[in-house]
Nucleic acid binder design. Structure first.
Lengths: 229, 229
DNA sequence: GTCTATAAATAGATAGAC
DNA sequence: GTCTATCTATTTATAGAC
């Protein structure tokens, strides 16, 4: 009654997802052939079309899962009752954790950014927007309560997310530069970088204790829809 | 004696460079076919192989010119006699200007980052490193003179460059999100973002006036080659 | 320098046996 | 669910006329 050596259905599907994520991250959608995915996943090429309609459908499944996961983490942090500075810390850490837990996430996101979202569907758009909305909520609250100086939430969001994405995305590039003879070794561990960014954001965002007392609701102008430059 | 209507040699070469830069930025190296480049540049496909050895050689020429240009700007700023805070402002502005002057630069850089530098030659590596070395010089000087609080130059570099690359790179993505019904319009003009980032970096980097008097050369430990985590 | 035509390799996708 | 074999379109690149 022992199981046949044949792999279970869920196994081959998962192997395809894992292998495809690795390949798409390293070489992009156009740069990855279905043959390569099959080879890496150690499945037959036809299996990919059995489990997924097309190369593009497979790509979309992977991409969406990544953004949905990050969106959930961000929403949970915004809904928590931590004070705004700690929420900012948590957001930075969450993005970093997500990037470490799924190494294919940063390269795929960078590529999608470069692509200008040409291949993203509405659901993935919303998941990306959810991360921003959560961050905006946190920053807005910080400004309103006087914990933060008056900053634009969206621009601040870029300043939080940008460094983490840049750090995560450049991980293999930095390793390559470090191995090469360019005269620099830009390799550091993620925890150090998180601590650095959190400290920078604290100093940049938190209002000096003296100014924290009285703060009316003036100067809360932020960028919104219809604000085109 | 009027010139024949035939295009000059330099024109077709430049047309190829321009068209290829646009296409590579939008679709990546693998996603761009030589046919597309020829169509966009309005030249015959064979002309591309006449002026450049291969698709890859053409790509490399464009990529290298972008990094060399940014590296030069950065070195000039580091060599200037501005005080460190103004030099940081200038670096941020230079990266932004470069990205605006050559719209293909941000997407191409993001893609190369995602690629992990697999296709970069030593010269391009050095050009990328030059930008970092210039920034490190500026930050080191700021810390040494007591203008800045003690920060790690490399991590700080990520915190400067990351937001700008993220902002620039997401320009078309943000436009797409703004046009869509995602409930946000993340479009802002570059000058506003530069001002925001400069202000954030000032608050994050500049030492409070009280602490700016005495600062011995202690605590100048920074990440260097051979520092692997 | 510019073009047409085409070679040679590789891509995504499917039919059909088991 | 899994595999082999193959169809068709597209790709990079070149040969050779003008």
């Amino acid at each position: 009654m022992a199981r046949p050596p044949k792999r279970l259905a869920r196994d081959s599907r998962q192997a395809i997802l894992d292998g495809a994520a690795t390949e798409f991250a390293a070489r992009g959608f156009a740069g990855t052939s279905v043959d390569r995915i099959a080879r890496r996943a150690e499945v037959n090429k036809a299996m990919i079309y059995y489990h997924f309609r097309s190369k593009e459908a497979l790509y979309r499944v992977i991409l969406r899962s990544v953004f949905l996961s990050l969106g959930q983490r961000a929403r949970a942090i915004a809904a928590s009752d931590l004070p705004p500075p700690e929420q900012v810390d948590a957001l930075v850490e969450a993005i970093m954790r997500e990037g470490e837990a799924r190494p294919h996430f940063p390269p795929m996101m960078l590529r999608e950014i470069a692509e200008g979202g040409r291949c993203l569907d509405a659901r993935t758009f919303r998941a990306m927007a959810a991360v921003f909305l959560a961050a905006r909520e946190v920053i807005d609250r910080g400004v309103q309560t006087g914990a933060f100086v008056a900053v634009d939430p969206m621009l601040t969001y870029f300043t939080m997310l940008g460094p983490v994405m840049f750090y995560l995305g450049t991980s293999s590039l930095r390793a390559a530069i470090g191995r090469s003879r360019a005269g620099v070794d830009p390799r550091t561990d993620p925890a150090t970088f998180v601590a650095h960014l959190q400290a920078m954001l604290r100093r940049a965002l938190c209002a000096p204790a003296s100014a924290r007392a009285a703060r009316p609701l003036a100067r809360r102008r932020t960028t919104r829809a219809g604000d085109r430059p």
